[in-house]
Design a protein around this nucleic acid. Structure first.
Lengths: 336, 336
DNA sequence: TTGTATGCGTTATCAA
DNA sequence: TTGATAACGCATACAA
């Protein structure tokens, strides 16, 4: 592949002049420029980013590390981040961590290695004990709860409040036996434990006792997980008239299982999810949900990252942004 | 950020020795190694990939450029590619082209610039006229129809055959007025035009005349697009008892619109999509579809790319791999 | 077993 | 207006 040297030789000028042409520097005679351009075309020259980045010390690229691609939530979110980053002329490269601590650390290292100018990292595998991994001196924005002490900006959604509002909505629509489908409870305040806390708070506010048989734990927030949760409830003979699912994807799986069990939604059971996926608008029945305003989260994450990258307010204390949430009522919780 | 030089100085050795330690070279005395490791830890040293790549001439990273993240199909596909690439110790960076020719060319350029060792590129914006863009001398695998003449491997699915089988399935289940929801027909053989061709072939085989009022064109393969297509059919008063949708996502949107119009699926209208998304297994009713075996496509794409990267069979003619398709019958086309 | 010299492709600086 | 030099950080070849 042709280099600047090759072009320079072909055009009979110095490499520096070629560089000046490439970068649109002002003081190049137009006849010289023409020669160089011609040589570039003939040799089909392309800049080598590795070399340019090495020289520039930055890459004009940010990384986005998400747990899983094939969850609609992350697909949507990545699209939003790309849109926001485009406004700053930043390219976004997305990678998958598969929820593993190792891969999350790898993503951090890549950033550190100046492959990216900064990184937006969704932490699932990392726990409070790994906080020192985040004591880094390059731009990072964490997506997730503030479980780290390092000088790192966080962007999160109000999980407790959202779950509380969702549960209160079910109660308001007449439910009294509300099952909660959540992930395993860890020691760190992850989405599951926070949403479960919000659920319990809402029950308490309404003076409805909690019942551990209504708490179903699944290992993955998938369609399959949602189906299995309902199957387990039914198999155990647990009576429930409301279902709060950790995510919309789980809720969509639950809708299917309820349908197969000949339980009507919303007449027999009312269902609400969390995330406001577009898919929920189209399901049958349409899915009530909690909108975490992921557009706002994406915009803020990029904005905070750009601030760190550009060195504005370098002294700024680590910031935590919590996007506001609101319940969106659809058919799955309609009055019956 | 600390460099090899800094570590060398701190450890009282030469930079080369540090490099040897980093890369696990054999001939390093263990006491020296210990000193270096200690210095690396104290300075929190991390390799600079830009420099290493510049030196190595490769990056152990491949690019995957997809049209859109927030389509389940591409989310699934990206996940498969990442799994396959992991077997070759290749990292995958995913970027979005937004279906634009410009971004597709950009992705090519990045690859070219040795940011990636190779690129898997889904072409939507590029057309036959841009074939010369693909006359490149670095590893590229195109996802999509063989509309380019360059020395490039292609991985595609059998769109015609899949569409034909889907339509034949509807006919076999008793449909006679089958609507087709497709994208705009371009001059190049894209997914839409190929699937439409397969649809027409199946009608012809069954000696069913085609009716242009049954051909609905939408601009985006989205849930919204599917809903609008059905609304347009109903608004025009077109009678139909079968619906073949360009993608599962479109079909899911159509299911919703049919439900709102009080048309029963499969009793009044039978619906089939294309892609075999997991979502279709869980919709109500479950969605019949065409499975393009995207796992096989991902595996083949990575395999072909790795062959080109490693320089095996460099003389090999450009290959075209067409994954086989099969109809998966579910509730939306159940006999009624 | 360790170190020196060199170059990967680019661009900033400064001199011509 | 153009060019020589040097440096970004790393690793290969070879010397010591």
């Amino acid at each position: 592949m042709a280099t600047i040297q090759d072009v320079a030789r072909a055009a009979g000028v110095s490499p520096m002049t070629v560089s000046n042409v490439i970068n649109d520097h002002p003081h190049v005679k137009s006849s010289t420029r023409a020669k160089v351009v011609k040589a570039m075309e003939e040799l089909d020259y392309r800049v080598n980013h590795a070399a340019r980045n090495l020289r520039a010390g930055r890459t004009f690229t940010i990384g986005l590390a998400v747990p899983e691609f094939d969850r609609p939530f992350w697909g949507h979110f990545a699209t939003r981040v790309i849109e926001e980053a485009a406004a700053y002329n930043l390219r976004v490269l997305v990678e998958q961590t598969g929820r593993s601590k190792e891969n999350e650390i790898n993503a951090l290292a890549l950033s550190r290695n100046r492959m990216y100018d900064g990184l937006i990292l969704s932490t699932v595998g990392l726990s409070a004990g790994d906080a020192n991994m985040l004591r880094v001196d390059y731009p990072v924005v964490i997506l997730g709860e503030r479980i780290f002490s390092g000088p790192v900006d966080h962007v999160a959604m109000d999980n407790v409040d959202g779950a509380k509002a969702a549960t209160a909505h079910l109660i308001e629509r007449g439910c009294r036996r509300i099952a909660a489908v959540m992930g395993p409870m860890g020691t760190d305040p992850d989405a599951s434990s926070l949403r479960y806390a919000g659920y319990l708070q809402a029950l308490e506010t309404a003076a409805i006792g909690s019942d551990s048989s209504l708490h179903v734990t699944i290992n993955e927030f998938t369609l399959k997980g949602g189906r299995e949760a309902v199957d387990r409830l039914l198999h155990a003979g647990t009576h429930f008239d409301g279902l709060f699912c950790a995510t919309d994807t789980v809720a969509l799986g639950a809708l299917r299982a309820l349908h197969e069990a000949k339980l009507r939604v919303p007449e027999d059971v009312k269902v609400i999810g969390f995330d406001n996926l577009e898919e929920g608008e189209y399901s049958i029945p349409a899915l009530s949900t909690v909108d975490p305003d992921s557009t706002d989260m994406a915009r803020t994450a990029v904005k905070l990252l750009v601030q760190r990258i550009s060195g504005e307010s370098p002294e700024r204390e680590p910031l935590e942004f919590i996007s506001s949430v609101r319940v969106i009522a659809r058919g799955s919780t309609a009055a019956s």
